[in-house]
Design a protein around this nucleic acid. Structure first.
Lengths: 228, 228
DNA sequence: TCCGCAATGAACTAATTGGTACATTAGCGT
DNA sequence: ACGCTAATGTACCAATTAGTTCATTGCGGA
């Protein structure tokens, strides 16, 4: 692999003045980002042990040398992948604004956002599964990740307060409980999609069933919170 | 590792008539089972790619040779592990009898059984996670596993029928939907235990929270089914 | 009792894989 | 102009790892 702008065999190589469209050479940030992109895909696809440094390098426009130059090793690369993935998720979560809705509509909206979000980022869910197989040892060691608060929890906390004040919600489930219920549902359908289909013949991510599932999650959470 | 009946260093080795309590030599079934036991542990612990055939062999009282003799290779061993694990789960599921309970109590009982069951078999949950990382390709290829019906679904189906007939349950969720909700909750708290604790500081499997979580699941499912 | 085969063990191998040594070059600051 | 360093590429290595070869032995049946 020599250059990003590969030529088909027959095409004449443009002679002198062929300037590569993006100023392509020696761009540390671009190289770093490209490695992270490929590594994210590979780790999510094959797990930590299953991913191959050589394979990651090969799918890059640079070489294995650069992985060690920028990240130090396979494990540090994996941690960098995790950190970036979580960072992205968090920044997306920042954007949710449901303060203006009534508590019931607000939880329903929040659940729907999580639903959409997890469905749109299967590779993130896979990374989380993989990290759990490793007992979250990398997250625990990463200062950038461990204990970093989740914006969703604050939002949920405020919604619950309003729901309690209005006498709408039961008092014996806290924000983390509700988040757990929502996460369970949303993570499960992506994380366990394949065994589920193999065992039950139903694809939980089937587009035809999507609306039914989304409504089901909303109903589930609202019914739970407003029960009794 | 030479024998199942290990001696402490100081104890004198019993001389001639020491018949090994279980007739220990040349027992194909025992060897097979021991390999499967160790392999289950190792695969669940480190994933398919992360598990080492040498390590599995070392933790056995036999040698690597036997793994290849009985199973053929790493992948076939892994499939054998999966098949046995699923078989055990199914046989346990056979035992549930909730026909005598009213529909609401029956779903609550069923959910509780799944809850207990998954909590008691974390290594099974891990294997399922691992198999999902591999897109269930091994399950799909295994005749013993793919498409084999789950007894839980029949039980749930009958409970739902009774609930519908009694006008207790909503009609727009089927048995598989309910099973999905229950599985989501039960699988998630085990499968994602570690990242959850690392990120939120709460152990979903903490014994102190166990009853709360168990009740929460029951309430969740019942509230959902009886809503409106 | 003894033969044939299932069952077992020790050592070996070919390929893979994470990681490195060494050489090179682009381009920024002066 | 130019030199110094960040950035990059090639080739290599040592360790690991799945799988095998070949020899051996216990045991059930004839």
């Amino acid at each position: 692999m020599s250059s990003a702008a590969q030529q088909l065999p027959d095409e004449p190589v443009p002679s002198v003045a062929a300037v590569p469209d993006p100023p392509r050479q020696r761009d540390a940030e671009r190289t770093r980002a490209e490695i992270l992109d490929v590594a994210t895909q590979e780790f999510a696809d094959r797990g930590y042990a299953g991913a191959r440094v050589d394979e990651i390098a090969a799918k890059t426009s640079t070489t294995k040398r650069m992985i060690y130059y920028y990240f130090g090793g396979k494990e540090q690369l994996y941690v960098a992948v995790l950190e970036r993935a979580y960072k992205r998720i968090r920044s997306l979560e920042q954007g949710l604004d449901v303060e203006h809705l009534d508590p019931v509509q607000a939880v329903r909206e929040l659940a729907g956002l999580t639903f959409d979000h997890h469905e749109a980022h299967p590779e993130f869910i896979r990374l989380v599964s993989i990290e759990n197989i490793h007992r979250a040892e990398h997250i625990a060691r990463s200062e950038a990740l461990s204990g970093l608060a989740n914006p969703v929890l604050d939002v949920l906390g405020r919604i619950l307060e309003r729901g309690w004040d209005a006498g709408l919600f039961r008092g014996d489930v806290d924000a983390l409980d509700v988040h757990q219920v929502i996460s369970s549902f949303c993570v499960f359908r992506t994380a366990n999609r394949h065994t589920w289909r193999a065992l039950f013949g139903r694809d939980m991510l089937d587009a035809e069933r999507r609306e039914h599932q989304r409504r089901m999650l909303g109903d589930l959470v609202v019914a739970h919170l407003t029960a009794r």
